[in-house]
Design a protein around this nucleic acid. Structure first.
Length: 578
RNA sequence: GCCCCGUUAGCUCAGCGGAUAGAGCACCGGUUUCCUAAACCGGGGGUCGCAGGUUCAAGUCCUGCACGGGGUACCA
């Protein structure tokens, strides 16, 4: 729609004697089609022209704009309403849509700009749980959308693979490994090595109640790890590798990938230099036996080193900022991390600023709200009624199972029922995260997610399936013969205009790092199309209607591309049958 | 205490300072000899938390207040 708005804006600007840029963003849709096909509120022009808006509208309505696809310009109060020469408009619009081919929706908005996105970033030695879904899928969708908007994207999985908890784990392996049967069946030979690590960890904490000396031993193990002790390193390496392999299973299922998988462990050396720089610049202070950088009056200081001399995750984050800046010279660096860590990032960014690093104002915390689980009829953060975390894998399996049942009930005819159920179930779970603005807290309502009705992922997939179904049955028609001139009905035009917005929607979603913008757009478009579909026939056997049928097929084909790309960029698999 | 975030229909949420605030769910009623009913159509349901302010125009921007959530130095 952008090119059309631009053309019209230029024409109006010429006769109204105002800069075209002030007009471009002003266009809107009239509340009622009978008023026109496009509207321009004239209020902002009143200041420039020192005339009342209704009068400006009236004057402009008289002018000859010389835009071939605009048939009539009418003033309705302070609004200037345009009626299109629909045949011409649709012809031009369809040509534009087709020029983009299968890549429709992409743009060059982010040309020459680089954005680093830190997402997923789980801790190793633990399972991925439902709450990891948000960072993982929002981040992946952002990465896809930024790429679609023409940015160079570096997706980073910044693993939590370092810290004192690994001392505890190594210590637990030493003491209780035998009891867990590690000698008989080493971690690598187990179906679920992470489960073993979890129980070792819980056991360590239980034992610590009666054996407080374990805490000191754990610290010693972490020291061994830090100093490169071969045994500690080997065990840590194994835990890391097994965890990654396990994560990969889920990432594959979810269609998630990264350009760089790097752990906090990789910043050991660099941390030293960064701390030196902090010291040299006089920012480092002693406070309550710890080394800190103060960041402001009513904000707690940023901790660099604990009183025992060891570093914290913030210190590693600082080193990571430096590494990312040196490596990629990013224009933006996004942290897709829950809103609860807002303070941490505020501190981190302030320290970067105080250090005078030039990337300080390019760092952003793309925060998202907490995920709440159903507990006793209400909603609570984190865990279920029995205090268990819900594993992501279980949720996906359950959703897929529900999809399978739904397919049986509906008698779905598909080539590969397994793969289809997988795509529907997983798509439903993913879309639940793409619907609301990321900052909102979400209630993880599995029953609602697997209802597959209303504003859901399957609804969007189903709509895409409809496009594919129509096109499949359109033997004897060639979309390439469509001219667009028959898309002159109100409903055809409305759909066409909505489809034309897609590239702008994608660009804005990227700019704002807000995948829900695309999610909402697709829901709206699906609703528009499904209403259209109930009232209008696309395929018409009447030879006299051949031109219109071909044009409508072309429109359906562009809707198909829009959904295909939109769904993929949100991380959801588009289906041809379901 | 201080700092963030939120508050729009019974519930979950859209809403780019612009014309009469919209969806989905739930509830009630309807639609399938015809491109897949995971769909569509109709119905009821709103002092946009409260009070000021800015503006030609405020659900949207600003200030204050109330309520809810989160965070508040050696965990990540």
């Amino acid at each position: 729609m952008q090119t059309f708005k631009r053309e019209l804006a230029a024409a109006i600007a010429a006769v109204a004697d105002v800069p075209p840029e002030t007009l471009e963003g002003l266009f809107s849709s009239p509340p009622d089609r009978s008023l026109g096909d496009l509207a321009l509120p004239c209020f902002p022009l009143a200041k420039l022209r020192k005339t009342a808006p209704p009068q400006i509208a009236a004057e402009l309505a008289e002018a000859d704009l010389g835009v071939p696809w605009v048939k009539e310009v009418r003033a309705t109060g302070p609004y200037l309403n345009f009626r299109f020469d629909r045949g011409r408009f649709s012809t031009a619009a369809l040509a534009e849509l087709r020029a983009a081919g299968e890549e429709y929706g992409r743009s060059e908005t982010g040309r020459e700009r680089t954005v680093v996105i830190d997402y997923s970033s789980p801790n190793i030695a633990k399972h991925l749980a439902v709450h990891h879904l948000r960072s993982t899928m929002l981040g992946q969708a952002m990465a896809n959308l930024f790429r679609a908007a023409g940015y160079r994207v570096v997706g980073v999985n910044h693993l939590g693979d370092w810290g004192t908890s690994f001392g505890k784990l190594l210590c637990a392996m030493e003491h209780f490994g035998e009891a867990e049967g590690l000698t008989a069946r080493p971690l690598a030979e187990r179906d679920d090595p992470i489960a073993t690590l979890n129980s070792l960890y819980t056991r360590f904490h239980a034992e610590m109640e009666t054996r407080p000396e374990l805490e000191e031993e754990a610290r010693e193990w972490f020291r061994r790890l830090e100093t490169g002790d071969p045994l500690a390193r080997a065990r840590w390496r194994e835990i890391r590798d097994l965890s990654l392999a396990r994560f990969q299973r889920l990432y594959d299922r979810l269609g998630v990938s990264f350009d760089e998988v790097i752990g906090e462990s990789a910043f050991e050396e660099r941390m030293g230099t960064v701390v030196e720089e902090l010291e040299a610049s006089g920012l480092l202070e002693e406070s309550e036996d710890a080394q800190v950088v103060s960041v402001g009056e009513d904000v707690p200081p940023f901790l660099v080193r604990k009183k025992d001399g060891t570093t914290l995750y913030g210190t590693r984050d600082l080193a990571a900022v430096q590494q990312r800046w040196e490596t990629w010279h990013f224009d933006r660096c996004l942290y897709v991390v829950d809103a609860g860590q807002g303070l941490h990032f505020r501190q981190l960014f302030t320290v970067v600023e105080k250090l005078g690093w030039p990337c300080a104002d390019r760092l952003e915390h793309s925060a998202f709200g907490v995920m709440r689980m159903p507990v006793d009829g209400g909603w609570a953060k984190g865990r279920t009624r029995d205090g268990r975390v819900v594993l992501l894998e279980e949720v996906l399996d359950h959703a897929v199972e529900c999809a399978r049942r739904a397919m049986e009930e509906k008698g779905a005819e598909v080539d590969d029922p397994e793969a289809t159920a997988e795509a529907v179930g997983v798509g439903a779970v993913i879309f639940s995260d793409m619907k609301a603005r990321r900052g909102k807290d979400v209630n993880f309502d599995l029953d609602k997610i697997v209802s597959f009705e209303g504003e859901t992922g399957p609804y969007l997939q189903y709509t895409h399936v409809r496009f594919c179904g129509i096109l499949r049955k359109a033997a004897g028609y060639s979309v390439s013969e469509a001219t667009g001139q028959h898309l002159d009905g109100e409903a055809d035009l409305a759909l066409l205009q909505e489809v034309l917005l897609f590239p702008e929607v994608v660009a804005r979603a990227a700019e704002e790092a807000e995948p829900s913008i695309v999610g909402q757009y697709l829901l709206g478009l699906a609703s528009s199309f499904n209403a259209y579909y109930a009232q209008h026939r696309v395929l018409d056997d009447d030879p006299a209607a051949r031109g219109r049928t071909t044009d409508r097929l072309a429109l359906v084909d562009r809707l198909r591309v829009t959904f295909r790309n939109g769904l993929r960029w949100l991380g959801i698999a588009p289906l041809e049958r379901m």
